[in-house]
Design a protein around this nucleic acid. Sequence first.
DNA 1: TAGATTGTTAATCGATTAACAATC
DNA 2: TAGATTGTTAATCGATTAACAATC
Lengths: 218, 218
Amino acid sequence: MVNKNKVSFGPSIRRLPSYLNIIRSSQSAGVQFISGTAIASELNQEPIQVRKDLAITGIIGKPKKGYPVNELVMAIDHFLGWDLVHKAIVVGAGNLGSALSGYQEFKNHGLDIVAAFDTDPSKIGSVIHGVPIHPLDKLDEIVPRIGAEIAILTVPFPFANSSCESIVKAGISSIWNFTNSKLKVPEGITVWREDLSSGYAMLSVMMKLAQKSAVEDL
Amino acid sequence: MVNKNKVSFGPSIRRLPSYLNIIRSSQSAGVQFISGTAIASELNQEPIQVRKDLAITGIIGKPKKGYPVNELVMAIDHFLGWDLVHKAIVVGAGNLGSALSGYQEFKNHGLDIVAAFDTDPSKIGSVIHGVPIHPLDKLDEIVPRIGAEIAILTVPFPFANSSCESIVKAGISSIWNFTNSKLKVPEGITVWREDLSSGYAMLSVMMKLAQKSAVEDL
DNA sequence: TAGATTGTTAATCGATTAACAATC
DNA sequence: TAGATTGTTAATCGATTAACAATC
């Protein structure tokens, strides 16, 4: 039971969705085969990296031709678990929660947002992007009924951990955490934290470097 | 001019914002010193990793006591460039754009969202979270006037590259890209892509692994 | 056929972790 | 003082990149 929470090939997994985008658009263009070289050049990457990444999905390409597009799409979808539908709820129906509820793309990846929860009485009862908003204290009752597996957590920071507890208590075992809070969860609960601050940290540092090298270029 | 676009210490930079959160809350609790050990245990990390990460900011700790909280906050803020204010615009004033405009936290990190742009006539002229929405074709005129440096790109996928072109033409050199599109930009433009799909890919694969190990536990 | 592209094996690179003397 | 915590140096680990024979 070692490494229970360690996902190998993290970087490769994170790159697969970009490949899938490109491959899918070749697919709808009616192309039969796509080479790792072509995918790489589209993304400004090295071809060897694309080949290594695709290898983890189990797909086998043909020398000179590339990878069979239809099989490749299926292989990536399956590897990512995107060929299965998971019902999800949004907890915290603010702007971000609304935005995610409306993301058509997620539906193509098997993420089916079926309900949202909030404490604001003015929101409860209304519907955003086809998703009904329920009172937060009905989690226990509604989650088992609708069979939700995933909670998308978009409450304000101070409410993150209490909401998380309610979510776990309601029987959900996977949480996509958009708050800045490091959630304290019992063993067996899967959490992925989407950290916008760290994204801005990267942009900000890159900006500093760009300015510096622009000065050096003078 | 090698490595112009390579940021060293990427993983460390991405972890710094989490540390900053914890250190800031110690700061407001009036604590004078915080140890790497304490930060690590808060985040379920190894202390050595925290020490290594903090070292890149130039801060020096005191054996047995830890790091001086006030100096540490300043060191991280400065290293990340968060001690400077950058004016930003939102391009694409949908739900996600609105959500980001309202993020109070970003303001604390020097990100000042001063305008939004959209093509939808029903949105133009209105104000979200204090941010006025302008017509997209006024980018050229308004960006130089307000001195915006950063564009937060939250348009739907098909409009990503054309919007990006307009943004660059208007004189902006840093783009925070929330679309799924790999942007084609001229040299010297800094882009950070915030990729929600790759986040969901990670969650999804982790869910598969969790189910598998739950079965193995029987 | 000739040559583009594959999968594999090996080399390099960078990040994480370990070990430990220094020290407040 | 004793011991917790630091910064540094070395070891390990994992990811990326290079090299290349196999092949359609």
